[in-house]
Amino acid sequence: MTAPVLYDVQGPRGRRRVLISSIVGALVLLLVLGLAARRLAANGQFDYDKYKPFFTEPQLYRRLQDGLENTLHAAVYAMVLAAVLGVLLAFGRLSRRRFIRLPVIAVIEFFRGVPLLLLIFALFLAWPRVVHTDLPALWALVLALTLYNGAVIAEIVRAGVQSIPKGQTEAAYAIGLSRGQTLRMVLLPQAVRVMLPALISQLVVLLKDTSLGFVIGYAELLRTGGQLVQVLRNPLQLYLAVALIYIVINSLLSALAGYVEGRQRRTSARAPVAPTQVETGMGVL
């Protein structure tokens, strides 16, 4: 069978046009970068004094390390809580009982629609006025990230579960599994492979959104970088360093996701088919 293609194979003339366009685009990009570098050099942004603190101030790295640790603490707490909340909300939305499904839909749509920054302010400023108990900046940030990302993850999980062929559900019902058991034991494990790329992308967004903690005084990485800028007076260099830290962390997270996805794919390919498995026209349980 011939494999389907998404586009027609280009001929010699088409390949030549693509090559010319690529060369022109690369030259334009190099020109823009050259003009930017020239402007930065004219403003003294390449002077040694701007980079000297990175070589002579060990306190700078300790402060950045403290900010990074605070960022990771908030991100890990929020990732775990958002994943649990997302799965619970997804199961509620997939419920056949209207008195469960409709309130869950309302909760998901509400927290997806409310800006994350507003949630952070509400938990940090309004919560103490309502319950007369102060909420630490860390947990105000974590709970806001959990509510927002949990609602988004719920939709990712729901879409992943609904993408599984109906034959899997029918086969699970045929061997006596309930609706809840089918979701937990059959559909969700298979949906994980489908939704893993979208789920990891959302976790990367969550990690970057921890930078919003600066508005409530949480000493995460971006706020720490801003405090250092006020002392060292080199904002371009320090914020570039902070951006590189975020890029490295997100790249590691994406690499981990790729490894897990590849491992799951290899495990599924090697898994033997047991003779007691229930087979249907659309899938195998």
Rank of each mutant, 00 (worst) to 15 (best):
V24T: 14
Q227H: 13
Q45E: 14
L119I: 11
I156H: 02
P58N: 08
V192H: 07
V260K: 04
T133G: 04
G34D: 08
L285V: 10
A26T: 12
G180E: 12
Y77M: 14
A151H: 06
L27R: 05
G217R: 12
L85H: 06
V32F: 08
Q227R: 13
V242G: 08
I247Q: 10
A41L: 13
A83D: 14
V248F: 07
V76W: 10
L252R: 05
L236D: 05
R15A: 15
N70F: 01
V18K: 09
L232S: 02
I216Q: 01
F110M: 03
P12G: 05
A90W: 13
I247T: 10
I153F: 11
S21I: 07
N234Q: 05
M282H: 14
A74T: 03
I120T: 01
R63V: 01
Q237I: 05
G11I: 06
R223L: 01
L89M: 04
A36E: 03
E279C: 06
G213W: 00
G176K: 07
A191E: 00
S268Q: 12
Q65W: 15
V87A: 12
L19A: 14
R233T: 07
F111K: 02
A90C: 08
E170D: 07
V204G: 00
V28C: 13
V104Q: 06
Y246F: 01
A159Y: 02
P197W: 09
V9A: 15
P53K: 08
Y218I: 03
T71R: 06
P165M: 08
G67Q: 08
G180I: 04
A106T: 05
V229W: 06
L123R: 01
I249T: 03
V142R: 01
Q65M: 15
Y77I: 14
D47K: 12
G14V: 10
S201K: 09
I153V: 14
Q190L: 11
K50M: 15
I245F: 02
V84H: 11
L85I: 05
L138E: 02
M79W: 04
F99R: 03
I164M: 15
L196A: 03
A75Y: 02
Q168P: 00
E155Q: 11
A151G: 11
F54I: 09
V186N: 09
S95G: 07
I105R: 14
L72H: 03
A255Y: 01
Y51W: 10
N250T: 13
P115R: 11
M282I: 04
T133Y: 06
E69S: 15
L102C: 10
I175N: 04
P115L: 02
L94Q: 03
E170T: 09
Y218K: 04
A36Y: 06
G150D: 07
A154W: 13
G213L: 01
A42S: 12
V260D: 15
A191Y: 00
M1R: 09
G150H: 10
L199Q: 05
S254K: 12
A174Q: 06
V32N: 11
R270V: 13
Q230P: 05
V284M: 10
L30T: 05
G213H: 01
Q190K: 11
N234D: 02
Y259A: 11
M1E: 09
L203F: 10
G225L: 07
A171W: 08
F124M: 12
K166W: 10
L33M: 11
A241M: 14
A174R: 09
A243P: 00
Y51K: 07
L147T: 09
G34W: 08
V186L: 06
Q264Y: 05
R62V: 14
K208V: 10
G213Q: 00
